[in-house]
């Protein structure tokens, strides 16, 4: 079990590494489509990357309602308790 802060750190590191984003841009309120310019193909890459880190086969469908970084943290937090 990881804390929300730990999850946020992993997500932020992944976003910076995968998409060459600047660290200050990755805040919990940032929207993937508008603020971070991450499209549906990027989302597949991100989900695959996070699945490997958290060692969980997650279906991209679990991420349907994810719009912001905060939504993603909620989603991962929920998945790790299942």
């Amino acid at each position: 079990m990881k804390s929300r802060q730990e999850i946020f750190d992993i997500v932020r590191r992944s976003l910076i590494e995968l998409f060459e984003l600047e660290e200050p841009a990755v805040v919990p309120e940032a929207r993937f489509d508008d603020d971070l310019e991450i499209d549906s193909i990027d989302a597949v890459d991100l989900v695959d990357h996070l699945s490997r880190i958290f060692e969980r086969r997650v279906s991209p469908r679990d991420f349907r309602s994810v719009h912001t970084v905060n939504d993603l943290i909620d989603c991962i937090d929920r998945l790790q308790t299942q």
Partner: peptide
């Protein structure tokens, strides 16, 4: 293939 997938693609 050296770069992370989203950048490389």
């Amino acid at each position: 293939r050296d770069a992370p997938l989203p950048i490389a693609s």
